[in-house]
Design a protein around this nucleic acid. Structure first.
Lengths: 153, 153
DNA sequence: TGTTAGTTAGCAAGACTTGCAAATTAGAAC
DNA sequence: GTTCTAATTTGCAAGTCTTGCTAACTAACA
């Protein structure tokens, strides 16, 4: 995602308005690596701007997504997540705490469906599921013998 | 997924009942490669057993999923999809017609997050997006010059 | 055939997201 | 600074998908 300042310029050059609501959302997303849901952002935004509506948050997020400034991630956990990182990257999801982390994957771009040579691939997405280091170390401390089990989904 | 007969045995051995509704759903899922939604199955089931409820379809699907007989796929298109194929495989989604196809991916199991060596991976999922051969050939026929554009998400 | 624990059906409700219309306001012109 | 207008925000209703709840039903077994 571009910087809030750049987005501001971009919006204005498109004949669109730069409202305080939008500016706030731009700043909340800037360098945000938490993969927030709309509700997450609404919570934070509300604290700084009481009265802002959830509807506006959704609206702005959709606009940014349409502009290609956000990547939408749906991991089937009830709720779309928004990622201001639109570089070529993938995701690692902790099945314990639910945290999502951006990761780069060597060789991902070269993956091909073995048995569907007639499928024209335009995009490849990789999702790792497992345990993040925080949850893993907590599990080890709590019960070393269970470690093996726990690490299996 | 096991065969309907095997599932029947398995259910009974668990002290659960083998109802006509369950049998129907087992048979509809057997060798089903369409990645149906609950609603899809409900539609087909209703034709063969008028009065069966959508609630029961959901219930049975969830039970099978818990038993590891179904893989749940959520591609963020509004609606979980159920895959009786629980072998190690991945998916190719046509962005034009929405069809999902099971594919095997050489090297997928060996993928690792480059920059998250502390993440304990227990599962890797790969999703290809693009155009299936049907849609691709249709696009070519309709407008050869647009082919390049169309094939880009 | 009777008993009963497991199931089903139907509806209400919950979670997430979008449509709509009235009220508000950023940005441009004067 | 004032005025104007199209873009935007709000709040609520509604839509989609899924689950909770419970009365009625029934498979399985004695």
């Amino acid at each position: 995602m571009h910087s809030p300042a750049e987005l501001a310029t971009q919006f204005r050059s498109m004949g669109r308005k730069l409202t305080p609501q939008r500016q706030l959302i731009f700043s909340l997303l800037h360098n945000n690596e938490t993969h927030p849901t709309a509700e997450n952002l609404y919570g934070i935004a509300s604290a700084q701007m009481p009265g802002i509506s959830l509807r506006t948050v959704y609206q702005t997020l959709n606009e940014l997504a349409e502009m290609g400034e956000l990547q939408l991630i749906d991991l089937g956990e009830g709720g779309m997540r928004f990622d201001p990182n639109v570089d070529d990257h993938h995701h690692a999801v902790c099945s314990s705490c639910g945290k999502i982390r951006d990761v780069h994957v060597k060789g991902a771009a070269a993956l091909k469906p073995n048995d569907a040579s007639d499928f024209m691939v335009s995009d490849v997405g990789v999702v790792f599921r497992g345990k993040c280091s925080d949850c893993e170390s907590r599990a080890v401390k709590r019960s070393p013998v269970l470690q093996a089990k726990v690490s299996k989904k």
